[in-house]
Design a binder for these strands. Structure first.
Length: 472
RNA sequence: GCUUCCUUAGCUCAGCCGGUUAGAGCAUCUGACUGUUAAUCAGAGGGUCCCUGGUUCGAGCCCAGGAGGGAGCGCCA
């Protein structure tokens, strides 16, 4: 094949190739270059995997002066022979015949230099300041590949189980979804918005002719779709304008929300558990090298924890049973446990990490501490809610069987001061062919947190959005 | 939003009781070395000690205010 018709090969594919002594073309970013006046070695990475390809440049073809621009961070295209390696660190390498520098990288100012001996390298906090370059690191390459694999596995799971992917709106006309503070969407001039006669902002002149916000949940629209298509799910961005400063919250995050007609709470738990387990299993099977790297680098118990989730049933118990366990626990809690109040992080962590030592599904919470749309239990005190609690993460899933009875739903809305007129379309589902149904929300980044073993949610999304930060 | 800790070279960090010209490792640059792979060895350059004000003969260090960051909590996914 003529050289100029040669097509680029992904480095990951080359490293697994047994078809040696052929001409190849690779393109990627230089991790390191080292050597002497006779031979130079370039470690090249193209993002197709964690491992680098060793490119060998002999001095007879490449005098050292010609390699000046091949510095850490530079982008190069290499033609050469794929050969068995003479060195010990790799099975194959590329003996270069030509190297083209596609993009230089000033070594004095490129911030991601190779990590040296006896030092920790750039901290995750420092990398957050250079989020535009951090995908070049081993850690973020691994996290982003795993994030992709999990997203793919989610679609595959639902497709294989007869679910339809519905696209719920990102801009919503409702501000009564009950899931938190919303970001306003408007095209009105911020300095001098049009006013009505009573002095308030005249949103009838806004783009949509009314107040609009970014969605905090696709659930209500998901319920509409489930009551037509049977089994559906959403997977999209979600926005919360809460001033949350924690390692588990983002202002912009991705949420997966399955909703299934005719499912009750037990079906909902079965779905959540099987779903989570299959996603973890997918990652273990398809991201072995990246997970091994994260296990070795950050958390020696990561792989063990993931395998534990795939091999063991989650512990299911009611809120009432959990309160009894916590009350009889010897541990002194900062906040007292009492039936009717929501569990604190320390209580959830005790149940998951100390008492059961496995993922826990808590159900049947007091109605006062849960959303208006959850189905009332027969005792009139609790609702058919479920929270899935994971070690290190806390609440990874929140869901419920929904109240399908129109009168009971309206009564709950009145109790909780949810305006009926804004949700007339939602109530219509209970007027026309209502049906039992259930669903839940899974925070995608919390799933990625658990699977990667990262400890801050800002490190599992490419460009995190959180209070006081919308750079990049 | 609350509590608490932190901010010194590109990165990771020392810096004693407030006392001369600010320290290390790595990175970067220069040189040496015939296959390296956390390469090795020698040398060099590199500082708004987060900002503002104060105390003091003298502040990286003490005090006040501000900014930014981490951890924990609340809200939740």
């Amino acid at each position: 094949m003529p050289a100029d018709q040669l097509r680029r090969t992904r480095i990951q594919d080359l490293l697994q190739s047994t078809d040696l002594n052929r001409e190849v073309l690779v393109k990627g970013w230089v991790r390191t270059r080292r050597g002497n006046k006779y031979v130079q070695f370039i470690a090249l990475n193209d993002g197709s995997g964690l491992a680098t390809l060793q490119v060998v440049a002999d001095a007879e073809k490449f005098p050292e002066e010609s390699l000046k621009e091949i510095t850490t961070g530079a982008c190069i295209a290499v033609r050469g022979q794929l050969v068995a390696s003479q060195g010990k660190g790799q099975a194959v390498e590329v003996q270069a015949t030509s190297i083209e520098v596609l993009g230089t990288s000033d070594p004095e100012t490129y911030p991601i230099q190779r990590r040296g001996a006896d030092q920790k390298g750039i901290s995750l906090e420092a990398l957050r300041e250079i989020a535009h370059l951090r995908p070049r690191t081993n850690t973020f390459g691994a996290v982003l590949r795993i994030r992709h694999a999990l997203a793919f596995a989610i679609h595959q799971y639902f497709n294989d189980h007869g679910f339809y992917y519905v696209h719920t709106p990102i801009i919503t006309g409702s501000d009564a979804e009950g899931a938190g503070q919303m970001f306003r969407v408007t095209t009105l001039p911020p300095e001098h918005p049009p006013r009505t006669e009573d002095g308030s902002v005249d949103f009838s002149q806004d783009f949509f002719g009314k107040q609009t916000n970014l969605t905090v949940s696709g659930q209500l629209e998901g319920e509409l779709a489930a009551l037509a298509l049977g089994s559906v799910y959403t997977f999209g961005p979600t926005f919360r304008a809460e001033n949350s400063n924690t390692a588990r919250h983002l202002a912009e995050f991705w949420m997966i929300e399955p909703e299934v007609a005719f499912n009750d709470l037990a079906d909902n738990m079965d779905l959540a558990e099987d779903f989570l387990r299959s996603l973890v299993k997918y990652a273990l099977e398809h991201c072995a090298a990246d997970l091994q790297f994260l296990n070795d680098t950050y958390d020696k118990e990561l792989l063990g924890r993931l395998k534990f989730v795939t091999d063991n049933a989650f512990q299911r118990l009611t809120y009432t049973e959990a309160v009894e366990i916590l009350k009889s626990a010897k541990k002194k809690f900062e906040f007292p446990v009492d039936w009717g109040t929501d569990l604190q992080s320390e209580h959830e962590r005790y149940l998951v990490e100390k008492h059961f030592r496995k993922p826990v599904i808590l159900t049947n919470y007091p109605k006062e501490i849960k959303a208006f749309y959850m189905k009332l239990d027969d005792d009139g005190r609790t609702v058919r809610a479920m929270d899935v609690l994971f070690p290190g993460i806390g609440e990874i899933i929140g869901g419920s069987q929904r109240e399908e009875d129109l009168a009971k739903l309206q009564a709950r809305m009145a109790e909780m001061h949810v305006p009926e007129d804004e949700l007339w379309w939602y109530l219509d589902t209970r007027r026309f062919g209502t049906a039992p149904h259930a669903g839940f929300g899974l925070g995608f980044e919390r799933l990625v947190l658990f699977v990667t073993g990262m400890t801050n949610i800002r490190d599992v999304i490419p460009f995190p959005r959180f209070p006081k930060n919308a750079e990049f």
